[in-house]
Design a binder for these strands. Structure first.
Ligand SMILES: [Zn+2]
Ligand SMILES: [Zn+2]
Ligand SMILES: [Zn+2]
Ligand SMILES: [Zn+2]
Lengths: 146, 146
DNA sequence: TGACACACGTTATAGCATAACGCAATTGAT
DNA sequence: ATCAATTGCGTTATGCTATAACGTGTGTCA
């Protein structure tokens, strides 16, 4: 009864909790902490942080959500389904970078081949095997810099 | 009596607490959390997290310590006093990147002009004003990748 | 002297994340 | 059909990370 519900669309089937969490994030125009998500979902039966964290773990695994390390917060993936270089939400290859406005909270997700390439080259030269790369720029967005 | 003690060397004068915290970090071969630092300094009179966090805030401000966002931990700056492009510990310009081994904990601090340039170009194009940029690569170091 | 800045110490609290238990449902052999 | 393995779920308790708010002492500079 708690198994994922298959949908006619693409993307992995989400369970009820996963859908609820993703919808909250997707509708938000700013990153949300796990506890803020929890509060938003109290009316839907959420009572404990683990319900949120477990859903987030899966959504992260599916590539539908990103974690912002410098904020301890989460955002829905903002990639179009088909990017220049990748498979959209899966981020087929390449690292994603985030520009985070410290005033309005808006987050821009982007990708830069050359950055990827340079970091990859450094890793190769040092014989370092990258697993996950975090790039986050904190500052003021165009609107807020005024 | 608690004012910074001037030293004959360069660098900003550190207070006793700041020195103690920096020394602990500098001697460590892996990042340390604030609470781990606290435990290491119990014998030196440290009793509360704030004593550590206040020292860390200053050391971060001085550029002598970096915060690893993906670990919620801290490392002493590993830059040589005079880098190719900068003023050493102050990181005169340019962003620093970290490669973090998830097996042995070793951290390599480096800088890449081109990465900087590309992120700067993106920001300029989007009219985004960067304040602080985080670049962290988690993975396996050469020794651990074996 | 008084106003100020700054480092410090302490207690309490807030915010983020996981451990450990048990139950229910699904899946996929045998 | 039945059993074992897997997965999702709910709950309670706990641990880790960080800051708020208060007061003290000290050096600086009108
Ligand atoms: Zn994305
Ligand atoms: Zn903004
Ligand atoms: Zn450094
Ligand atoms: Zn290693």
């Amino acid at each position: 009864m708690n198994a994922p519900v298959s949908t006619p669309t693409s993307a992995p089937a989400l369970t009820k909790n996963q859908s609820l969490v993703f919808d909250v994030l997707d509708r938000s125009d700013a990153p949300m902490s796990a506890y803020t998500i929890l509060d938003r979902l109290r009316d839907h039966g959420f009572r404990a942080p683990l319900q949120v964290y477990r859903a987030l773990d899966k959504l992260l695994e599916f590539g539908m959500v990103h974690r912002l390390e410098s904020l301890n917060a989460f955002v829905a993936c903002a990639h179009p389904e088909s990017e220049c270089c990748g498979k959209g939400h899966g981020h087929g290859h390449g690292t994603v970078a985030f520009a985070i406005c410290e005033s309005c909270g808006h987050v821009s997700e982007f990708h830069d081949h050359e950055v990827d390439h340079r970091l990859g080259a450094w890793a190769k030269a040092k014989n370092f095997k990258p697993a996950k790369t975090t790039i986050e720029i904190r500052g003021l967005c165009g609107a807020c810099a005024a």
